[in-house]
Design a binder for these strands. Structure first.
Lengths: 294, 294
DNA sequence: CTGAAAGCGCTAACAG
DNA sequence: CTGTTAGCGCTTTCAG
């Protein structure tokens, strides 16, 4: 049997070997550089490891659990990002013996976890703003919707406490999107107790805040200081340059994929939890003197 | 047999039904908003149509054909973007009866094709620059590497011809990336016959050109006019606002996915070729007076 | 060491 | 209308 052009049937092989040769990635949605940055890392490592990558966005759907359960049948393991599916589902997948890696998400059972340091950086960044003389800083974001946002909020609060300032009660709610960030910033800028600085939970919110500042005729950073999070590509192109916190997006995804593949290949048995470092990128929007952007 | 918690085995089902319940997407890479914008549209329509989405980036690999051939066994149809795999492979997939949709790529056989209008817009945009008094315009991009870039170059050349200007001989080569755009712009700005305008094949190249202009101490648009392509989110945040051409990224991807699903479901038999319209977004970098960005 | 046979878990065709 | 059986194409085991 030396038939040239013979193509093995993937489904038959998968059935016989009980092995799909594919991994799954579950994310909330794909808008913005954050998720796509992580996706890049996952994609690279998946093909590197000889596995296909099946992706699914939950888009806040209520039936996300059902979709992911269905997905789980066609893959050898799953990477779950943020607040996409219930803890129950994740526990269930593990119970069925499916390797699961959690990304930017609280741990469940024995699943491997990949996170980035958020709390200490948020505290340091907030202290930095306070050091610039800001005593009224608004936090724009939505902690309940995202574990990462929750940690940034915690660090934000901690800095106020450490500096002996009144502890902020609640954030100005905004999803991680530019339009919502603009709306939230407009609201807070119109309030009687207008803050002198905005701590935005990510760079897209910060972009919206820039727009809002322009609409209010406020100069950044003299009238209003702004900080972001993620250090997306545009951060250095904003005028003035956006002070923000860089996360190694590609590395996060790559690491998650590698951990998953190790579990699938049986290379590793004990679960690991990794926290990747972040880096505060000081530019001008926080009030620091303009300098060569890096 | 009313066992609760029964999970059908996807591989067995796929084998029995000769139907994978999945579609594939082949792209060169995921960097930048263009491909991820298209991906968003594909992802949304795939889950909408009840199909899983398997993605693969070729990253300029020489073995891209092999990878995609392997992928083709696990899906019911494939969307192929740009210059990722050989025409031979595409023809081969069709021969095996696999539905194929081509995206931003010349047609092969009976495959459905989704493209955006490029040539006429490029000609109009070039004429616009000429209308601003520019007689020395450099095209930065790499036509051979991308069918879209090739069309933009063709329109660029056509405009020179139509306006009775010397016809440009060749483009300044740069991949669709910011760093390469900056390098290409630096080269051309250092040349003795420095152009007064840069027609960049996409917005990321244009961003690199902005950086290069700053490094040369050139003011945009008075010393150097710049245009881009795609209208990515940051375009309006650049200072000055970037004049560019908007493509409906999400729609492109969504349409491709729908066409593929129609073929898979057998809803449609005759092949279609769609050209989606683009829109020139005039901001300030071309030399037009600053105005409210939209 | 080579070749036949028994699943893998499902669907679809077929009897009863 | 319900219950049984024969594949789907591969891997793996077991005889020969």
């Amino acid at each position: 049997m030396r038939l040239v052009g013979y193509r093995p049937n993937a489904a038959a092989r998968a059935l016989a070997m009980q092995h799909q040769g594919a991994i799954g990635l579950v994310f909330p949605h794909l808008s913005g550089p954050y998720y796509t940055g992580v996706l890049q890392g996952v994609e690279a490592q998946a093909t590197e490891g000889g596995a296909s990558l099946v992706i699914i966005g939950t888009h806040g759907r209520t039936q996300a659990d059902r979709l992911v359960r269905e997905l789980s049948g066609r893959v050898d393991g799953v990477i779950v990002m943020g607040r996409t599916v219930s803890d129950d589902l994740i526990a269930d997948l593990q119970r069925r013996g499916l390797p699961v890696v959690l990304l930017a998400r609280p741990s469940v059972g024995t699943a491997d976890v990949v996170r980035t340091e958020s709390r200490a950086s948020a505290e340091a960044l907030t202290s930095h703003l306070i050091g610039h003389g800001h005593y009224q800083i608004a936090f724009i974001g939505d902690p309940p919707s995202s574990p990462d946002a929750a940690e940034r909020w915690a660090g934000f609060v901690a800095a106020h406490r450490a500096e002996g300032l009144p502890v902020p009660i609640h954030p100005v709610v905004s999803a991680f999107r530019e339009v919502e960030g603009r709306a939230a910033a407009l609201t807070v800028l119109a309030s009687p107790s207008r803050p002198s600085a905005l701590f935005c939970a990510n760079d897209e919110i910060a972009m919206g805040a820039y727009t809002a500042a322009v609409e209010f005729g406020l100069a950044i950073p003299s009238d209003l200081a702004i900080t972001g999070w993620d250090d997306i590509a545009v951060a250095r192109f904003l005028a003035p340059g956006l002070t923000t916190v860089r996360q190694p997006l590609g590395q996060i995804g790559a690491l998650a994929a590698r951990l998953l593949l190790e579990r699938i290949n049986g290379t590793r048995r004990k679960s690991v939890s990794t926290v990747l470092p972040t880096e505060i990128m000081i530019r001008s929007s926080c009030g620091c003197a303009s300098q060569e952007d890096s």
